[in-house]
Structure formats: C-alpha cells, structure tokens
C-alpha cells in the first residue's frame, strides 16, 4: 500500500504542508458525511422519492427506509493475529466467524459475515467516520476498510405478511426454521441482488445498492399491495 496522504493527485507538493487525517496504517481517510446543517438541508436518501409516509390501515406489510446509515466493508484474514481482537476493540462487537451470521448491539451497530474474508458493518450514520478511523487504528497488516455509505441503503421489512412478500421475491428459504434471527445472506431478489438479514423475530433488513433502490422499492410496493402497506416516513 502506498503512503499517499493527499486526496488530490495534483497537490503532490502540499503533502507535507497539509497532512490529512493519518492513521497508523498509512491510509488516508476522510469524513464523507457533510456537517449536520448541510446534511439536514441537502441529503436525499435513495428512496426518499418513493417511500413517502402511507398507511392503508390494517397493513400486513410495514416498510421503512433506514436512510443515511454508515456502511463499511471490511476485508482481512481472520486467522491473522490480532485481526478479530482489533475488530472487536474498534467496533464493540465480536467478529462473526460462522458463515451467514450477524452480530448486532443495542447501539445500532452490526457486523455481518459475507465471506471467509469479508464483512459488512452497519453503524448509525454519524458514527461511520469514527468507526472507520477506529478500525484503521486497531488493525495492521493486510486488511481493507472501505466506507460505502453513499452507495447503499437499508430497507426495513416487517409486518404479519413480511415472509409472503419475501417468498414472492427470492429463491432463498425464509422459513423461520431456515432463516432464524441473526442470519444474513446475500440473495437473488427480484432478479437483482441484495443482502437479506433477519434482525429480529418480526423484522427483516434488505441492504440494497443505491442504483437498485428505485427498482427494488417499486417491486416491494407492488408485491406488498395485496396485503396493505404502511410506510413509515
């Protein structure tokens, strides 16, 4: 890994003059989130145009976009000394080593196994940069942390008929016996892909790419129509 410290390749001369936020890993990281005032004024989530508050009354499906969360992807070899410990120290959650599992805490943080060397970390939006920096501080050697918050969003799917909507959309077995709380897998969903996870008895989370959000949002609204839809704004 290079020891580049500037984000502007043209500003090579200014490297020493204006050190960026540096960590022990020699990786430059910036806070991608604008200041709270700018964020409040300008930020538009990928589903803001589609998921406007609605209540059909006696709705079987409850949808909500969990907008502006912090999404980080973490890669590394869990057999590497200090890796699992470092993640736990930085995040406050144990690194899941069992395939297709998810660890979460009361503070809204979660870490999900995606692959033997890849995890998805979700944190409240304002914590993304803090956690990203903490991971860089705690880890060493061959690893990678990337903030992908701008590229993804989360849809919460709950309600009595939630499983019916999932069964229409994905070949993944979502029966409670096969898909217990704490399980999360990438899935084929309405011919697109997303990450499907069960965060509680009653709630599924769908982590979708920004570019798929409109399509999948419309698909979900259509698939939910027959059960009655409540959208929390």
């Amino acid at each position: 890994m290079s020891d580049a410290t500037t984000l502007d390749p043209q500003a090579g001369a200014a490297v020493d003059a204006q050190p960026q936020d540096m960590t022990s890993s020699q990786t430059s990281v910036i806070d991608q989130r604008p200041t709270p005032e700018v964020h409040a004024q300008c930020a538009r989530s990928p589903l803001a145009h589609l998921f406007t508050a609605r209540d059909d009354g006696d709705a079987g499906i409850v949808l909500q976009e969990k907008a502006f969360l912090g999404h980080l992807t973490l890669r590394g070899d869990p057999a590497q000394p200090g890796f699992a410990e470092g993640v736990e120290a930085a995040l406050g959650l144990a690194l899941p080593l069992t395939p297709a599992t998810l660890h979460q805490n009361e503070g809204g943080r979660s870490i999900q196994w995606l692959s033997p060397d890849e995890w998805l970390i979700l944190v409240p939006g304002e914590e993304a940069f803090t956690v990203e920096k903490a991971l860089h501080e705690a880890l060493a050697g061959r690893y990678q942390v990337v903030n992908v918050s701008g590229g993804q969003t989360v849809i919460s799917l709950s309600g009595d008929q939630a499983r019916q909507v999932l069964m229409k959309s994905t070949p993944t077995d979502v029966h409670p016996r096969a898909f217990p709380v704490g399980r999360g897998v990438p899935a084929v969903f309405a011919k697109a892909t997303l990450v499907l996870r069960r965060v509680s008895e009653s709630e599924f989370e769908l982590v979708v790419r920004r570019s798929f959000a409109d399509y999948l949002g419309r698909w979900l609204l259509d698939a939910s129509e027959e059960f009655g839809v409540c959208i929390k704004g």
Partner: peptide, 11 residues
Amino acid sequence: PYCGELREEEE
C-alpha cells in the same frame, strides 16, 4: 464449501 451449506442454484 465456504458458506458451509446448500444454496440455490441461481446464486
């Protein structure tokens, strides 16, 4: 063999 379980062919 990495996920340790049976998954759908589509994947």
